[in-house]
Amino acid sequence: MQKFSDVLQTLDDASNVERIELYNKDGSPAGVIENKPGSQGSIKVYSHLARMYGEISLDAAVEGLSLYAEHTEDAENCPGKHPNVDRLLNILEDEQPLTIKVIEA
């Protein structure tokens, strides 16, 4: 299994992203990922998913969980520890895609 740190090196630079906003189907906020220490890996993953899929669909969630590598298993075993991974796991369960808006600096 690849490590998350190795996966991040294969993804496009996302240092220009200020934050990523996520919305439920009804337009209500589903979360925000700020570009700050501790969340920069998630910024890269979600930016990649936005480019590839245009939303966080079921297919995007499956790819995202693969990209998170060892953090996916950790999130399954420790709910709440990795909220950005939990969000993708929730999409697998409820099959409700999220709209994604990438805010650049």
Rank of each mutant, 00 (worst) to 15 (best):
residue 11 L to C: 06
residue 9 Q to C: 01
residue 39 S to H: 15
residue 57 S to H: 01
residue 66 S to M: 05
residue 35 N to G: 13
residue 61 A to V: 02
residue 5 S to H: 14
residue 88 L to Q: 00
residue 96 Q to T: 11
residue 28 S to M: 06
residue 60 A to H: 06
residue 99 T to D: 14
residue 9 Q to E: 15
residue 65 L to R: 11
residue 77 N to D: 13
residue 89 L to P: 15
residue 68 Y to N: 11
residue 45 V to K: 05
residue 13 D to Q: 05
residue 36 K to N: 14
residue 52 M to P: 00
residue 69 A to F: 14
residue 99 T to N: 15
residue 49 L to E: 02
residue 49 L to F: 08
residue 46 Y to C: 02
residue 69 A to H: 09
residue 5 S to M: 07
residue 76 E to C: 11
residue 101 K to E: 07
residue 77 N to Q: 15
residue 45 V to A: 06
residue 52 M to G: 00
residue 67 L to N: 02
residue 2 Q to I: 07
residue 69 A to M: 10
residue 89 L to N: 04
residue 87 R to L: 15
residue 45 V to P: 07
residue 42 S to Y: 04
residue 98 L to F: 00
residue 20 I to F: 04
residue 16 N to R: 11
residue 78 C to G: 03
residue 78 C to F: 13
residue 18 E to S: 15
residue 65 L to C: 05
residue 90 N to S: 12
residue 52 M to Y: 03
residue 38 G to S: 06
residue 90 N to T: 11
residue 21 E to M: 06
residue 72 T to D: 06
residue 95 E to R: 15
residue 30 A to W: 05
residue 87 R to V: 08
residue 17 V to M: 07
residue 50 A to L: 01
residue 12 D to L: 09
residue 33 I to C: 13
residue 47 S to N: 15
residue 52 M to C: 04
residue 95 E to P: 02
residue 16 N to H: 13
residue 92 L to D: 05
residue 30 A to I: 13
residue 7 V to F: 04
residue 83 P to S: 11
residue 71 H to V: 04
residue 96 Q to G: 01
residue 8 L to Y: 02
residue 90 N to F: 10
residue 101 K to S: 06
residue 14 A to Q: 08
residue 14 A to F: 01
residue 26 D to L: 06
residue 89 L to V: 12
residue 15 S to F: 05
residue 63 E to C: 08
residue 92 L to I: 06
residue 46 Y to L: 01
residue 32 V to P: 08
residue 36 K to F: 04
residue 36 K to L: 08
residue 22 L to A: 07
residue 1 M to N: 11
residue 86 D to Q: 04
residue 33 I to Y: 08
residue 84 N to R: 08
residue 86 D to G: 06
residue 100 I to E: 03
residue 66 S to Q: 05
residue 2 Q to H: 14
residue 13 D to I: 07
residue 38 G to V: 13
residue 95 E to V: 04
residue 17 V to W: 08
residue 54 G to V: 03
residue 102 V to I: 09
residue 61 A to Y: 00
residue 59 D to W: 01
residue 2 Q to W: 10
residue 75 A to S: 15
residue 63 E to Y: 09
residue 24 N to Q: 11
residue 88 L to T: 00
residue 102 V to K: 02
residue 33 I to R: 09
residue 75 A to H: 04
residue 5 S to G: 03
residue 60 A to N: 02
residue 49 L to S: 00
residue 17 V to D: 10
residue 58 L to R: 12
residue 41 G to E: 14
residue 94 D to Y: 12
residue 77 N to T: 08
residue 58 L to V: 10
residue 64 G to N: 07
residue 35 N to F: 06
residue 72 T to Q: 05
residue 97 P to W: 03
residue 69 A to V: 06
residue 46 Y to V: 00
residue 105 A to F: 00
residue 51 R to E: 15
residue 71 H to I: 03
residue 60 A to L: 08
residue 59 D to S: 07
residue 77 N to V: 01
residue 83 P to Q: 09
residue 12 D to Y: 03
